[in-house]
Design a protein around this nucleic acid. Structure first.
Length: 825
DNA sequence: GAGTTTGAAACT
DNA sequence: CAGTTTCAAACTC
């Protein structure tokens, strides 16, 4: 089924592109193009095939990544969240919510609901139960999300969330039921779904699907699970998810797991509310499709996405601190989060809780769904951020990169994915880019728990120009999140590390260490200068920070954004990852040292005079990369590689570590990898994003590759970036084995990866703004390494079934679109 | 925890 | 672009 649809979609997309509407949509969300396809496909055929096409959007990738992460989480014995949460439902629901949030992207919070993204998230959650199905759905949704434009087109999307929602809910319910029935299902065709299912294996082991394989896919979606699961029982989760997306997710999850009925019950309401999907037909169609293939998941995802999107706009969320705004979200509550923030991981539990509170507030209004609304809170968070940020410039430029990537959809969508770890942290991931983060987080999480990703895509504030838009969008998302966080501040979910990239690094670190979230101790810079690690990372300062007179908080988004812009104006790469992998695209400036296997390099190079590049004072050393020609260091003894090309004993190590990291990431968090892949793509496309995101992105990318391989690649076609990122490939290559790798490695890898991307981007486009435009260039570059995935659709074909499911990598396409959009602007 | 060292970031 | 200052992390005690 998919194939036909996909094919159709493919053409349609081109058509849409031609149309002004399509362009507009694209501008809104990077992912859109893909989505349109995806949506249609997804709905039409739940089968993976359809998904892949849809997946083209980056979001998809992100989702995938998240899935991997989740997978890990799930896998992690420590996090028996599923089981613990009695209700698998709870867990799933929560995850779903997260997923939904993540998925939510709305270039325009409302308009461009990116069902896809939300869907993706939802899928993630699904894993718990019928994760597989959910995953598939989510994927499809993601794909859809990937191209906001598409969504509208194909899906019909969801302009009128409310009306649609009702319809969707019903459909969802049906789907859920069916799904429950079909659990065993038909997933075969759809590996992704299966993957999700795998997550849910515990529950659904019976399903004959290969959960394991699915899990990876599902992992993306699942990511949320951990957090959500940990936090609340299923019921709560559902609530959290909020009526909309969450409900779907929960439904999906539940269905598979146990109570389809329950899901139905809840879902309907939620769905109604959630059903942002304007087009009932789409919903229905989806349902039908779902039934056929794995209708449930797809539908759910779509619906969820829609809901999220919708809800987001309407609700801004409160707190949703979880929304990860690049800058941290400040959810105060959460020192833990503080850790997370960089990681972009939020504690789901906290979020959920908050969500409940918030739910009453926003969700009630929007979703009116009662309990589930709470769940919706998470969504709300997303939404709020969206709404809040919406146009507003919440996004920080610098952070933007990472965030931007997520936001790429810029306007449209902010997809927030909440991946919750057992710890409850949630990661916000941009739809596409975010994914990358997830992976990172996931990597970390694996250690401890599942991560929750929250990826949000917001519309870029007008302020940011076209290019900026993308960036802004990403940033905005971050900021938006931050705002949300602020709102939520009461609840405090700390930041969300918006920036996936940032998160990426830190996540790695965090994951490993738990330290993930560093704290700044700024006293005079007000955390508005690069001196501030938080600011530099594109995240808001969190509770753990000991900063004084801190302005790097959601409350001061405007200030933060303005400052970021200023800094970026001076140095477009200011927020880009400092470390770049040469291997990928950039040979990087020929840094001799860089040649090291790791091929990671510090963009600017260090200027060490006394530390001999053997201490953390040295950024190269800190980044785990060898010094390069760019370095002006004296007496360089960098273990990872000397500037003079000297044998950097470390050189080999570096490479290994990096690879390992990537691998580990991949390994550890499949989901993350998936997400990362998306992120990476984004990064590639968008230097800005890349920079901040890089770390995470890298991971994500790797994951993404995996996803692609596994899921769908068609999306990639839309999004070259996915394929482009060499890292991803590496990641895939590496596989997941490396999960265990030490943080340091991860960090290094992350850095490496990010840099690579960034460099590419930078190379392609120096300025972040240009970045958007450059994104395409970046993609190209990326593509070579990824050539397979390459931006070109052709890659899709090459990809396997799994890829198909994933194909979307909406981020890429969206980015392109966004870039275009920006250009138009 | 306080103080020192270090090098990036910011400023001129 | 170079030099200086400011800043906060990294490090040491």
């Amino acid at each position: 089924m998919d194939t036909p649809d996909r094919n159709q979609i493919g053409t349609p997309i081109s058509r849409f592109e031609d149309s002004p509407v399509f362009n507009y949509i694209n501008s809104l969300s990077p992912i859109k193009p893909v989505k349109s396809i995806h949506i249609a496909q997804t709905f039409n055929s739940l089968s993976f095939a359809s998904l892949p096409s849809v997946f083209t959007s980056p979001h998809v990738s992100s989702h995938k990544e998240s899935r991997f992460l989740r997978r890990h989480h799930f896998s992690d014995p420590s996090k028996p969240e599923f089981s613990s949460h009695n209700g698998n439902e709870g867990c799933t629901s929560a995850r779903i919510l997260d997923a939904v949030q993540l998925s939510d992207c709305s270039a325009d919070p409302r308009e461009s609901f990116e069902p896809g993204s939300s869907i993706i998230d939802a899928t993630v959650e699904l894993p718990n139960e019928n994760s597989a199905l959910a995953i598939e759905l989510s994927r499809t949704l993601k794909y859809d999300c990937g191209s906001p434009d598409n969504n509208p087109m194909p899906h019909g999307i969801k302009t009128d969330p409310v009306s649609a929602m009702a319809g969707t809910q019903a459909s969802l319910v049906r789907i859920v039921q069916e799904v429950s029935k079909e659990r065993h299902c038909s997933f075969e065709s759809e590996l992704e779904i299966q993957g999700t299912g795998q997550i849910g294996q515990n529950k659904e082991e019976s399903t004959g699907c290969d959960w394991e394989s699915l899990i990876s896919d599902a992992a993306d979606l699942l990511i949320f699970d951990s957090s959500t699961n940990g936090e609340t029982s299923k019921g709560q989760d559902q609530k959290l998810v909020d009526a909309g997306s969450s409900s779907f997710i929960s439904l999906v999850l539940e269905l598979p797991q146990d109570n389809i009925d329950d899901l139905q019950n809840t879902q309907p309401v939620d769905r109604c509310e959630e059903l942002e999907m304007e087009d009932p037909a789409t919903q229905q169609g989806e349902v039908g499709d779902l039934k056929e293939i794995d209708p449930m998941p797809d539908i759910l995802y779509s619906t969820l996405l829609n809901k999220q999107v919708i809800s987001n706009p309407s609700e801004e969320p409160d707190d949703k601190v979880e929304n990860c705004i690049p800058f941290g979200c400040t959810p105060d509550s959460h020192q833990q989060r503080g850790m997370r923030r960089r990681c972009l991981v939020f504690e789901i539990a906290g979020a959920h809780r908050k969500n409940f509170e918030d739910d009453s507030n926003s969700s009630s209004s929007i979703s009116s769904q009662s309990d589930e609304k709470i769940a919706s809170d998470a969504n709300k968070q997303l939404v709020p951020s969206k709404t809040g940020t919406g146009p507003s410039p919440r996004m920080l430029p610098g952070i933007g990169l990472h965030l931007n990537a997520l936001a790429t959809s810029s306007k449209d969508c902010r997809v927030v994915k909440h991946e919750t770890l057992a710890s409850g942290r949630q990661l916000i991931s941009m739809p596409s880019p975010i994914a990358s983060f997830h992976p990172l987080t996931s990597c970390q999480e694996p250690l401890s728990k599942s991560l929750a990703l929250n990826s949000m895509e917001r519309e870029m504030g007008p302020a940011d120009g076209g290019v900026q838009v993308t960036q802004d969008a990403s940033q905005a998302s971050a900021f938006g999140v931050s705002e949300e966080f602020q709102h939520s501040s009461p609840r405090k979910k700390r930041h969300v590390p918006l920036l996936i990239f940032l998160a990426g690094r830190r996540r790695l670190e965090h994951a490993v260490e738990s330290e993930a979230c560093k704290r700044c101790n700024c006293k005079k810079s007000k955390c508005l200068k690069l001196y501030c690690e938080c600011f530099a990372a594109g995240v808001y300062c969190v509770e753990p920070c000991s900063c004084q007179d801190c302005f790097n908080k959601p409350v001061h988004e405007d200030t933060v954004l303005a400052t970021r812009k200023q800094i970026e104006s001076r140095n477009p790469l200011a927020f880009a990852p400092k470390v770049i992998r040469s291997s990928d695209s950039v040979p990087e400036t020929g840094d001799e040292s860089n040649k090291t296997p790791a091929s990671a390099r510090h963009k600017r190079g260090c200027n060490c005079k006394k530390s001999s590049c053997l201490k953390k004072y040295c950024e190269c050393f800190q980044g785990g990369v060898g010094c390069s020609i760019n370095c002006r260091c004296e007496a360089c003894k960098n273990v990872f590689g000397r500037k003079d090309g000297g044998p950097a004993p470390m050189g080999t190590e570096e490479t290994e570590p990096e690879e390992e990291e990537t691998e580990t990431c991949d390994m550890n968090v499949v989901d993350i990898s998936l997400q990362n892949s998306g992120v990476q793509k984004d990064e590639e496309h968008y230097p800005d994003r890349v920079l901040p995101v890089t770390p995470s992105f890298q991971i994500c990318r790797t994951s993404v590759h995996i996803q692609f391989s596994s899921s769908s690649k068609p999306p990639r076609s839309s999004l070259p970036t996915l394929g482009s990122s060499p890292r991803l490939h590496t990641g895939q290559r590496l596989g997941k084995s490396d999960f265990l790798r030490p943080q340091s490695k991860f960090e290094k890898q992350f850095q490496m990866i990010p840099e690579d991307e960034t460099p590419e981007i930078l190379r392609g486009n120096c300025s972040p703004i240009s970045g958007v435009k450059s994104a395409s260039p970046n993609r190209k570059r990326v593509s070579p390494p990824h050539s397979e995935f390459g931006p070109s659709p052709g890659r899709r074909s090459s990809r396997k079934l799994i890829l198909q499911s994933i194909p979307s990598f909406p981020s890429l396409t969206p980015h392109h679109e966004t870039s275009d959009f920006a250009d138009t602007l």
